[in-house]
């Protein structure tokens, strides 16, 4: 188990190292941060002073080594724009993104699993076909379009829900959370729906496919032959088998959800890391971009670790020690 975790962390370190190089080179190629940071009227002397204070006067490889040196001591540099530690900026906005992604995931599981299960068990019915047609739409509609349509309908036309922002939050151990109040939910609903829709469609399809596979298994027939109620056959014997792949996929998809949150956060002006990333890229605020990517990679590693542990809990045939 410990070996397993250490191996995972080493993989993560490798990814972070490669990525930081790419980001450095990438941003260097996109443009010169100074052009954005320094006003056009500034004198050449001012420019140089600012460049020196940000370390931008040195050659790129030197900048990179300096970054690595301080990063190893836990210092990821200061934002060019805000002048605050980049990592602090990210962590400050992380709860908003995580909350959005988690609520979107939970919503997509709670809606997707029952729909998929129904579509699988009653696959010849009209309702099942309608569900599958719906899931194709959910899959293929672009994220931003869904977001805009939801805003059009629920915010502009009906006026039921706010179109943007995060609204009131509740402070829990220093973390700001929306989902504890009704007012918070009003702000959360549309972005979470937008973000979760395609995941929900994916879960519907996965649940349907596994349900159709599992329902033909001998152990389901044996469960019926034991005289179990239909409720128990479906709710325990079939559902528990479906939850194994659902948990794995959902967990792994949580990572892409966090990444996709960038688009949704921008549409709804949700104050999360994704919106910060977009703003930072626009301003060529390299330290923030690098810090964002590092945080996200670590997050993904953590998620896949949790998924593996959950998987072994759900499927007793899997033991972590054997996982390669």
């Amino acid at each position: 188990m410990l070996v397993f975790i250490i191996r995972r962390l080493m993989q993560a370190a490798l990814v972070v190292a490669v990525m930081s190089v790419l980001v450095f080179v990438g941003i260097y190629m996109i443009g010169d941060p100074l052009a954005i940071l320094v006003s056009p009227e500034a004198t050449e002397l001012d420019r140089e002073a600012i460049a020196r204070s940000l370390g931008l006067d040195r050659p790129m490889w030197e900048q990179y080594l300096a970054f690595v040196g301080s990063a190893l001591q836990g210092d990821f540099g200061k934002s060019f724009v805000f002048g605050q530690p980049a990592i602090g900026l990210i962590l400050e906005r992380m709860p908003a993104t995580l909350e959005l992604a988690l609520i979107a995931t939970i919503m997509s599981v709670l809606i997707g699993v029952p729909l998929g299960l129904y579509a699988g068990l009653r696959h010849e019915t009209v309702a099942a076909r309608a569900i599958m047609a719906g899931s194709v739409l959910g899959f293929s509609l672009p994220n931003f379009w869904v977001g805009l349509m939801l805003i059009m309908v629920f915010a502009v036309q009906l006026g039921w829900l706010p179109a943007s922002g995060r609204g009131p939050t509740v402070d829990v151990f220093g973390i700001q959370l929306s989902f504890l109040t009704l007012a918070g939910w009003k702000y959360l609903a549309l972005p979470a729906l937008t973000l979760g829709l395609s995941k929900c469609a994916l879960i519907v399809r996965l649940a349907r496919a596994t349900a159709r596979e599992v329902m033909l298994m001998d152990f389901v027939k044996f469960a019926r032959a034991k005289g179990l109620s239909e409720k128990r056959v479906i709710g325990v014997h079939i559902l528990k088998n479906i939850m194994v792949p659902i948990t794995t996929v959902t967990g792994l998809e949580l990572g892409t959800l966090i990444a996709f949150a960038v688009i949704t956060e921008t549409i709804f002006s949700w104050p999360g890391m994704g919106k910060l990333l977009i703003d930072s890229i626009v301003h060529l605020d390299r330290p923030v971009v690098v810090a964002y990517l590092i945080v996200v990679v670590l997050l993904l590693v953590l998620i896949s670790l949790i998924v593996d542990i959950l998987y072994s809990v759900l499927d007793p045939r899997v033991r972590l020690g054997d996982a390669k």
Binding site: K226, L228, R232, V236
Partner: peptide, 29 residues
Amino acid sequence: RGARIAMIFQDPMMTLNPVLRIDTQMIET
């Protein structure tokens, strides 16, 4: 079913639910 008329299947590898413990599967019966 399972009370007055019981059935045993051909393939023992497939008749028990892989994700449930034996006690769960017997006690529920």
